[in-house]
């Protein structure tokens, strides 16, 4: 029991289960999944479906945070990627041409990775703190996205493109497969190559890592690049789902949700150990929370209040100062408790 409670995924799993149980009690049909036209329908599928773009961004964010960094620009990168993909397709003669769609996607992904690299360059080479360095792209990025779309919402009519964000493959949405694939890729890359060790080592003790011969600059550059790439992919899914790109609103708040998911998943903002599975659970918690709020009929915007409380609770639990205060108040209770026990034994 003690070992289970000490496990790093204990709290996230507990919260997720509690949320699901609450939903089940509120609505016995919550877990019901139906098959219609070779497609699964149900609340759980919705959670997976709406959670996949966030999961993508959060996976990239996990690696960046593990290196003691942070990437505030992911929301803007989502918008830029969506804008590039839709703009490219909209300029084509045949919007449904598979070649054109592939070109659009590749262009968007390359640009996103490049933007990630730019962040990494500012952090590692110029030596600007990550928050500040990525803030620049966070501000500029939305402008760039709107520049690409000329401030309009670009709509594309391309069934081939729409498959990515709204299509179905083997009963499940395609985007879920994409998120799963990237998750597997990230897990493979960090656990089957030495990258994971290097990232954790650089995030944990940069000086010792350098002296052990780890190329910390390359490692951090990669983390930012990968994060940009993931955000780009999320942008493609989001724009494909609605067949349009909105430079202003695509990916709004994504940076905050992604950071939140990472923190809930147990990865510390101070870098070091990271937990991709934890991040995934964090995403599911956030998405389930949203779904719960929708299904209970509370205005969805209130979601933010709940999120605020979750952020605070998670951070307070991680804070040593808070735990000490908590422990002190427990200790001050304990003596009286012991006295009661003492009485019981003398009587016995």
């Amino acid at each position: 029991m003690e070992r289970i409670r000490k496990h790093h995924l204990f709290w996230p799993v507990l919260v997720l289960v509690a949320l699901l149980v609450f939903n089940l009690l509120y609505d016995p049909d919550f877990f019901r999944i139906q098959v219609r036209d070779g497609k699964l329908y149900g609340n759980l599928i919705d959670i997976l479906f709406f959670g996949s773009p966030l999961a993508l961004v959060a996976i990239g964010m996990t690696l960046v945070i593990a290196t003691r960094g942070i990437d505030l620009s992911v929301g803007s990168v989502v918008a830029i990627s969506a804008a590039i993909a839709c703009f490219t397709i909209s300029k084509g003669a045949d919007q449904n041409d598979p070649g054109l769609v592939a070109t659009a996607i590749l262009l968007a992904l390359a640009a996103s990775a490049l933007l990630g690299l730019w962040n990494g360059f500012l952090v590692t080479r110029v030596g600007i703190q990550p928050i500040v360095a990525t803030l620049i792209l966070m501000v500029t990025g939305r402008g760039i996205a709107q520049l690409i779309t000329s401030g309009q919402i670009i709509t594309v009519i391309s069934p081939n493109y729409k498959v990515i964000g709204a299509g179905t493959l083997l009963w499940l949405p395609v985007s879920v497969y994409i998120a799963a694939l990237v998750f597997a890729l990230a897990a493979l890359l960090t656990r089957k190559t030495a990258l994971g060790l290097f990232i954790e080592s650089v995030g944990c003790n940069p000086t010792a890592s350098r002296l052990a011969g780890i190329r910390s600059v390359t490692v951090r550059l990669f983390a930012y690049l990968f994060c940009g790439f993931c955000a780009g992919l999320a942008g493609i899914i989001l724009s494909s789902n609605v067949s349009s790109a909105d430079g202003n609103n695509a990916g709004l708040w994504y940076e905050l949700d992604a950071i939140l998911a990472v923190v809930i998943g147990g990865t510390s903002l101070n870098g070091g150990r990271f937990f991709l599975t934890g991040t995934l659970l964090g995403v599911l918690i956030i998405q389930t929370l949203t779904t719960t709020i929708y299904s209970t009929g509370v205005p969805p915007e209130v979601n933010l209040v709940v999120k605020a409380l979750v952020v605070l609770a998670v951070c307070l639990i991680q804070s040593e100062g808070f735990r000490r205060t908590l422990a002190r108040s427990l200790v001050s209770v304990r003596p009286s408790h012991q006295r009661v026990e003492g009485k019981v034994t003398t009587r016995g």
């Binding site: 954790e200 003790n205 000086t207 052990a212 780890i214 150990r273």
Partner: peptide, 27 residues
């Protein structure tokens, strides 16, 4: 401050330098 990578396990600390000299992909 310059030696151990404190959060990581003994195993990871032991292999850190060897792994670093082998690079990413020859894990």
């Amino acid at each position: 401050t310059e030696g151990i990578i404190d959060e990581l396990s003994v195993r990871e600390n032991i292999i850190a330098a060897l792994q670093a000299s082998q690079g990413w992909f020859r894990a």
